[in-house]
Amino acid sequence: MLSLIVSNPLFGVVLTLGVYFAAQKLQEKTNFALLNPLLISSIFIIILLSVTNIDYDSFNKGGSFLTMLIGPATVALAIPLYKNLALLKKHYRVILVSTLSGVIAHAILIGLFTFILNLSPEMIATMIPKSVTTAIAIDISNQLGGITTLTISVVIVTGILGAALAPILNKFFKINNPIAQGLALGTSAHAVGTSKAVEMGEMEGTMSSLALIITGITTVLLAPVTQAIIHSLYF
């Protein structure tokens, strides 16, 4: 009976969506940032597949349909950019400087990780797109020769930590400007950070959305350069 259910392509789709929405309800009730639906649903599905001995390929027959939506989701990022074009023009200096600073800071951090943890070239390529949204991170990881599945995990963890730590860091460093708060979340914690920014306010959410998109574009352009510099320093 189980084999018949698992062999149906709908199995992966229904399981993924069902677990995700359940995890979303859990976070809404607890209001605990670390109970992020992406993290909880991923952990639950991994445990379920392991306990029931369901192989990943069977699960991914339906899950691949959801993966196909990553391409359209990437293109759809242009919509908020277009809608907020006036705001982008008004604050373009702050937005560009903030996002570029964030991308450079991420690159320096990867360099430090390489030195401290003695990362392999493959792991460097895996880590470089850690702070951009999954849709973009997958393509960057593929192009650089990284481990795509591991990149997705790193991206999720980065986003969750960024969203969870943002309120604490804002309070500690007395960052009260909504533009600064939004740009920081979008630059460092991609879509997960943007969802947190939306909760904080309209301006925070808008600026985070813009930062998310521009950070993704900038990272795509600078990722090969970052990889080349780190390789020249350590290999």
Results as ranks from 00 to 15, higher is better:
M1H: 07
L2G: 15
S3R: 10
I5F: 14
V6C: 04
S7A: 14
S7E: 14
S7H: 13
L10E: 06
F11L: 00
V14C: 04
V19I: 13
F21C: 11
F21P: 03
A22P: 09
K25A: 14
L26T: 11
Q27L: 13
E28Y: 11
K29N: 05
T30C: 11
T30D: 10
T30H: 03
F32A: 01
A33G: 01
L35M: 11
N36L: 04
I40N: 05
I40L: 14
I46M: 15
L48Y: 09
L48S: 12
S50C: 12
N53F: 08
N53Y: 07
S58H: 10
F59E: 02
F59R: 03
N60R: 00
N60F: 09
S64C: 05
L66H: 06
L66E: 03
T67Q: 13
G71E: 04
P72Y: 01
P72K: 05
A76P: 02
I79H: 04
I79G: 10
I79L: 12
P80S: 03
L81K: 05
Y82D: 00
K83R: 14
N84D: 04
L85A: 14
L88F: 15
L88R: 08
L88Q: 08
L88A: 04
H91T: 11
Y92E: 02
Y92D: 08
Y92K: 12
R93V: 14
I95T: 10
T99E: 00
L100A: 15
G102N: 06
V103N: 04
A107Q: 11
I108V: 15
I110P: 03
L112I: 15
T114K: 00
N118H: 15
P121E: 01
E122P: 12
M123C: 08
T126K: 02
T126F: 12
T126A: 08
M127L: 15
M127C: 15
I128A: 05
P129A: 08
S131W: 02
A135W: 09
A137W: 02
D139M: 13
S141F: 10
Q143K: 15
L144M: 02
T149Q: 08
I152S: 10
I152N: 13
V154E: 09
V155F: 03
V157N: 10
T158D: 12
G159V: 06
I160W: 07
L161I: 14
G162C: 03
G162N: 00
A164I: 06
L165E: 07
L165C: 04
A166T: 02
P167E: 02
P167H: 09
L169G: 06
L169R: 00
F172E: 09
K174N: 02
I175T: 02
N176R: 03
N177H: 03
P178Y: 10
L183C: 11
L183N: 07
L185S: 13
G186A: 03
A189R: 02
A189E: 05
G193M: 02
K196C: 01
M200W: 10
G201L: 08
G205R: 07
T206P: 01
S208F: 06
L210K: 08
L212I: 09
L212D: 01
I213P: 00
T215P: 06
G216L: 07
T218D: 07
T219S: 10
L221R: 00
L221Y: 09
L221V: 15
L222T: 14
P224C: 01
P224T: 06
A228Q: 10
A228G: 04
I230C: 07
I230T: 04
H231F: 14
H231Q: 13
Y234E: 05
